[in-house]
Computed example of a mutant assay.
Amino acid sequence: MRGPHWLALFALILLCWVVLYAMALPADLRAASKLYGAEFWAELCTVTPDAAGFARVVLMWILMSAAMMAPTALPAFATYDDLAKQAPGARFSHLVSGYLVIWIGFSLLAAAVQMVLFRLDLLSAFGDSRSLWLSGGLLIGAGAYQFSTLKKACLSKCRMPLTFFMQYWDEGPWRNGVRLGLVCLGCCWALMLLAFVGGVTNVAFMGLATLMMALEKLPDIGRYLTKPLGVALIGTGIAFMAWAMM
């Protein structure tokens, strides 16, 4: 992983995490700190639906998707970079751009869902669930998806990036990136929506979810993680449902 394109990618990931951390800081702490005292940053870091509006909620989801999903795709990016050394027309930047386009689309939908759930008073202004039924339903749904055929098919492609790229190489880097993004979306969309349980602005949740999704895509580790994670999510969801009925 050498070269300016890798430095640019890692810089993008780091920048996304830094901005997400700034967004997660409490408002009173931002107001007290000169580091975040500029009016621009104060406005940017206000991402609650009631104060920020749809555009900044979308921006937050785009940053979150890039920060969380790009690290999980690093093995695939590295595989493509190795193959591209033998093909001068293969642009690494086009691959990453195609990949991120899919997650920008997901971010638009996720932000819209967040706004609707907030208006229904099912989410707090900070994006965490106010309803045990909603939390339980999301957890059970994400857990059940761990056992689905679609999840299995998408994970098989993520775990074998060389086979994936050899199959679709002739389509070019941008379409390869879009395909990779779709496969990655198929693996991770349900786990990403658990942000509504853990809190959309909860950096600790984001870090843990990123780690789980990255490990799940590794062939030697992921096959031992996917189903136990599904069982744990379903069990936690059932516990939330039982708590709601008490």
Score class of each variant (00 low, 15 high):
1 M>R: 07
6 W>A: 01
7 L>T: 13
9 L>E: 00
10 F>A: 12
11 A>N: 05
15 L>N: 02
16 C>R: 01
24 A>D: 10
28 D>N: 11
28 D>Y: 10
38 A>T: 13
40 F>D: 03
40 F>W: 15
41 W>H: 03
44 L>R: 03
51 A>H: 12
51 A>W: 01
51 A>P: 00
52 A>M: 08
54 F>G: 03
59 L>W: 05
61 W>E: 06
61 W>C: 08
62 I>Y: 02
65 S>C: 14
65 S>M: 15
68 M>D: 05
69 M>R: 04
70 A>V: 12
70 A>K: 02
75 P>I: 09
78 A>F: 11
80 Y>Q: 08
83 L>Q: 10
85 K>Q: 14
88 P>C: 05
88 P>F: 03
89 G>H: 10
89 G>A: 11
91 R>G: 05
91 R>I: 02
91 R>P: 01
98 G>Q: 06
102 I>N: 00
103 W>A: 00
107 S>A: 15
107 S>N: 03
108 L>A: 10
110 A>T: 11
113 V>L: 15
115 M>S: 12
117 L>T: 06
119 R>K: 14
123 L>C: 04
127 G>A: 07
129 S>N: 06
131 S>K: 10
136 G>H: 07
136 G>Q: 10
140 I>Y: 08
143 G>Y: 04
145 Y>T: 03
145 Y>F: 15
147 F>R: 07
148 S>W: 12
149 T>S: 13
152 K>M: 04
154 C>A: 14
155 L>H: 11
156 S>R: 13
163 T>G: 12
163 T>Q: 13
163 T>I: 05
165 F>R: 05
169 W>K: 07
169 W>L: 12
169 W>Y: 13
173 P>N: 08
174 W>S: 06
175 R>V: 10
177 G>T: 10
178 V>I: 15
181 G>M: 02
183 V>L: 03
185 L>Y: 15
187 C>T: 09
194 L>N: 00
195 A>K: 01
196 F>C: 07
196 F>T: 08
197 V>Q: 08
198 G>C: 09
200 V>A: 15
202 N>T: 04
203 V>F: 02
204 A>V: 15
206 M>T: 05
207 G>A: 14
208 L>F: 13
208 L>N: 01
210 T>K: 00
211 L>E: 01
213 M>I: 09
213 M>C: 07
214 A>P: 02
218 L>V: 13
220 D>V: 08
220 D>M: 11
222 G>A: 07
223 R>D: 14
223 R>Q: 13
223 R>G: 02
232 A>P: 02
236 T>A: 15
